[in-house]
């Protein structure tokens, strides 16, 4: 009996969400198959890569990274990252805003964000410092300062979704990411709450949580799998937002990427290890359903871009 191919495209689809404006705007989502199931249907929008540019920590970056960027200046690094064809958007990571760290003022962060926005034409994603109070203020004010730029704020959480959703999503019409730390029921609940607040589901993306491979990553993968299965298989409109996964912030913080070669000679080059961690984690996230991954090292960005290009 001849083999009859039966493609399995779902009747439901992930929402399409556009980031940024103008020629360099990028649309993510739109798929109605599992990730890379190109035998079921062509992938409407290929997954994309964002480049993380952090406001602190340049001195600790590996040599290859420094060689590529050549400067600590955030705006210059954002310009260099944006010049890479493989990079679809820039993720400005204001880690230095942390009151228990460098404690940079919100105003200082916003000045940087505005300077980058003036210098690059690719979409911007704003990542905070994980301090709830500071991030809430930063996200609200940056949404105002970059009004019209169609940025993404990463992310609204259970504790601050009302303020962040109201400012970024409602007042300034930016895109809002809802962050749930590997909690599938909370992921849905946050989306429901934001929609009840009045945020348009088409203006929302999800950060379902992240981890470095080997650090509880299996929970991340199974959460993403289950979310995608509900979104497509059960047509769950509360879960059809595209997924943006920050990878570099996790993978460059674990000992495999941090330990110097002098301390761990048997592990070999620190930079190669860091790139490997970033690449494997990003590849796993993409195959579990991320529509965008945020990476840091140019080598990782090039590698993952090739992977995406080869698979869809």
């Amino acid at each position: 009996m001849p083999f009859t191919k039966k493609p399995h495209a779902f009747k439901a689809a992930i929402n399409e969400v556009t980031l940024g404006t103008g020629d360099k705007a990028v649309t993510i989502g739109g798929e109605n198959t599992y990730p890379f199931y190109t035998f079921d249907n062509t992938t409407k929008n290929k997954p994309v890569i964002g480049a993380e540019v952090s406001d602190i920590g340049y001195e600790n970056e590996p040599e290859g990274y420094k060689a590529f960027f050549g400067t600590e200046d955030m705006v210059e690094r954002a310009k260099k990252a944006a010049a890479m064809d493989e990079v679809a958007f820039i993720c400005l990571h204001f880690a230095g805003a942390d009151p228990f760290g460098a404690n940079k003022s919100v105003e200082e962060c916003i000045e940087k964000a505005k300077a980058v926005a003036a210098a690059v034409d690719k979409p911007l994603v704003i990542m905070g410092c994980k301090n709830l109070e500071k991030d809430t203020e930063l996200f609200s004010k940056v949404s105002e300062a970059l009004a019209g730029k169609n940025i993404v704020v990463l992310s609204a959480r259970e504790e601050n979704y009302k303020t962040v959703g109201a400012s970024a999503g409602l007042a300034y019409n930016q895109k809002v990411s809802a962050e749930s730390a590997v909690d599938i029921n909370l992921a849905k609940q946050l989306n429901v709450l934001m929609m009840q607040l009045g945020v348009n589901p088409k203006s929302m993306v999800m950060n379902l949580g992240s981890a470095a491979a080997g650090y509880g990553y299996e929970y991340v993968a199974s959460t993403m799998d289950r979310v995608r299965a509900a979104a497509l298989g059960q047509n769950d409109t509360q879960l059809q937002m595209p997924v943006i996964t920050p990878v570099s912030t996790e993978t460059w913080a674990v000992k495999e990427s941090v330990a110097e070669e002098a301390d761990m000679p048997e592990w070999g080059s620190r930079e190669e290890r860091g790139i490997d961690m970033e690449v494997v984690t990003a590849a796993a996230s993409l195959s579990a359903g991320s529509d965008a991954v945020i990476l840091k090292h140019p080598e990782s960005i090039r590698t993952i871009y090739k992977l995406i290009d080869a698979l869809c």
Binding site: K188, Q189, V192, Q196, R226, A230, Q234, D236, Q238
Partner: peptide
């Protein structure tokens, strides 16, 4: 398991 649980499931 026809629908994913969220605290607001009765409202949606």
């Amino acid at each position: 398991n026809n629908n994913l649980y969220a605290d607001s499931y009765l409202e949606i």
